[in-house]
């Protein structure tokens, strides 16, 4: 019998260690695993390298993790959002490192990492500052740049429904980075609003297969970043 459920968000992130690389799903607030991030803040791991498309808003979720001083470096495509003040302040003070990656290259680096592909060539960013210092090669008469696959020690994502084997389906545009990040995490932790028994999901509709998921946390009514910010919340 397989049952990947763990008791709660704190149990799910208990073994995240100082200096770990952590992928965090979400595009803006859509798909952001806020309860897992807040549990990681409580847990206390520091000097984290966070791979996520954005850097959070307000002082909740990902922005709260940054504000708590737990993150040494972010790998992301767009560290600027309405209501985003925490990252800009840390960055301007030189207290956080930024590796800026085009969004599609970021997605493909994560996918490649999860698929066992160490590197790939892409024309994206050729001739721009983001390709400087990287290996170039011409294919079919066009210049390409070498980009490396990336993996993570832990992946934190949010789904709508999981079965006990870790098969996951998502909601609307909350899916975004979760499926490739699930593949690229050594330990992949998913929070879902609903858990069903094995057999409760149509195999034809499964988006992330259970083999990529290690731990499931049941968060029946997940918080939404914009609602927390509108209510003036900050974490902790």
């Amino acid at each position: 019998m397989i049952d990947k459920r763990v008791a709660n968000a704190h149990a799910a992130v208990a073994d995240v260690f100082d200096g770990a690389t952590v992928m965090i799903g979400g595009f803006g607030e859509a798909g952001s695993p806020i309860e897992l991030i807040h549990a990681l803040i409580d847990q206390g791991a520091s000097r984290l390298v966070v791979i996520s498309n954005n850097t959070g808003s307000g002082e909740v979720g990902l922005a709260a993790l940054l504000k708590a001083g737990r993150v040494a470096k972010v790998v992301c495509s767009f560290p600027r959002t309405a209501n985003s003040t925490v990252f800009p302040e840390l960055y301007r003070r030189g207290e956080i490192e930024l590796e800026l990656v085009p969004q599609g290259t970021l997605a493909e680096r994560i996918r490649a990492g999860g698929a066992g592909i160490p590197a790939f060539f892409t024309p994206t960013a050729v001739g721009t500052p983001l390709a400087q210092g990287k290996e170039h090669r011409v294919f079919n008469g066009r210049e390409h740049v070498l980009e490396h696959g990336i993996r993570a020690d832990f992946t934190l994502i949010k789904g709508r429904t999981a079965d006990t084997h870790g098969n996951v389906v998502y909601h609307a545009t909350a899916r975004n980075f979760a499926p490739p990040m699930a593949m690229a995490g050594t330990v992949t932790i998913v929070q879902v609003a609903e858990v069903v028994d094995a057999g409760g999901l149509d195999p034809e509709s499964v988006v992330t297969q259970g083999i990529f998921v290690d731990r499931i946390v049941h968060i029946p009514s997940p918080a939404q970043e914009s609602e927390l910010i509108a209510s003036g919340a900050s974490y902790p």
Partner: peptide, 12 residues
């Protein structure tokens, strides 16, 4: 604050 999003992928 440098931010690029998907623009480089789109034009390429």
């Amino acid at each position: 604050i440098p931010a690029v999003g998907g623009a480089m992928d789109l034009v390429a």
